[in-house]
Design a protein around this nucleic acid. Structure first.
Lengths: 152, 152
DNA sequence: CTTATAGTCCATCAATTCAATAGGATAAAT
DNA sequence: ATTTATCCTATTGAATTGATGGACTATAAG
């Protein structure tokens, strides 16, 4: 299950993605808009900044903004930054491989064979989906919904 | 990351899968073969039994065996039995759907859109892979390895 | 019917992780 | 200098994870 931390992070990044190009945004504003505990969000955004995903500015007129355009930040990148490797086993991670201590022979481990497939499928999706993609898809759905409401 | 519980469970089930048709096997034997803490494995096998995946017999000549042939037990089924839904969000689970409390509108949630893809991809793999499939794949690899060693 | 065998069940444990909060330090703008 | 806002460290309570101990129950064999 996705942690609240990651959920909050993605929500925040989607907001900052929509705001991209309009200067920095306050933690408090993001927190309020998404009903995220302010102090908790502070930690999350700080971490994302230290991972190079966000930029920040202190003092008046300060706040947070994306470090790159939303087309350049993938969901996979965000989740790895906060939760570590996407892979269900360390021995099938591409970005953070290390062997399972208890595994006598990696090549003949059946669990590994299956989990490798899962990790590849997951990475294929999350690494190819950018914040911009998500925003666009939400807009399409939202648009569709509103049109539907109007037509009633 | 896969919990040790699930890892132990799958290892045990793969052993029991190979042994299928030869009567019950002792917890202690399974534990020893895979270097799993005996008491911990006891809990796991009991849970798998209560979930209908395993059968047990008490007393002398007793032990555990698969409740169905290894072709009839999928990895997805095992993981759901022990860890709950495969889905990264409750709102994208098919087998255990319930909405995210904090989500104002499910239809327009971008995170949901992405995570639904992940859950579908994961479920497609894990639900279509049976214990028998895993065993067979391991045998193919093992066979290949041994042949390779012989040919040197 | 007694005994050895082997799973069942309950309770507890330490260590870690998760979610959240608190408060002072630091940097920047007016 | 003061206000604003992020930065950083520490702490907390609750839940989860991984593991262990011991008493109880069912069964087969003698």
């Amino acid at each position: 299950m996705l942690s609240k931390k990651s959920k909050y992070a993605l929500k925040a990044l989607l907001i900052l993605g929509r705001e991209y190009g309009h200067g920095p945004m306050l933690i408090s504003d993001v927190a309020q808009r998404e009903a995220i505990p302010r102090k908790f969000l502070e930690l999350i955004l700080l971490e994302l900044k230290n991972q190079g995903i966000l930029q920040s500015k202190k003092g008046k007129g300060g706040g947070y903004q994306l470090g790159k355009p939303p087309t350049g930040i993938s969901v996979g990148q965000v989740m790895r930054a906060l939760e570590g490797p996407l892979a269900p086993l360390p021995c099938v991670s591409r970005t953070a491989y290390h062997r399972c201590e208890e595994c006598p022979d990696e090549r003949t481990c059946g669990i590994r064979l299956v989990m490798k497939e899962v990790r590849d499928a997951t990475a294929r999706i999350l690494d190819s989906t950018t914040l911009a993609d998500v925003i666009k898809r939400v807009d399409v759905v939202t648009q569709g919904k509103e049109t539907l409401n109007f037509s009633i």
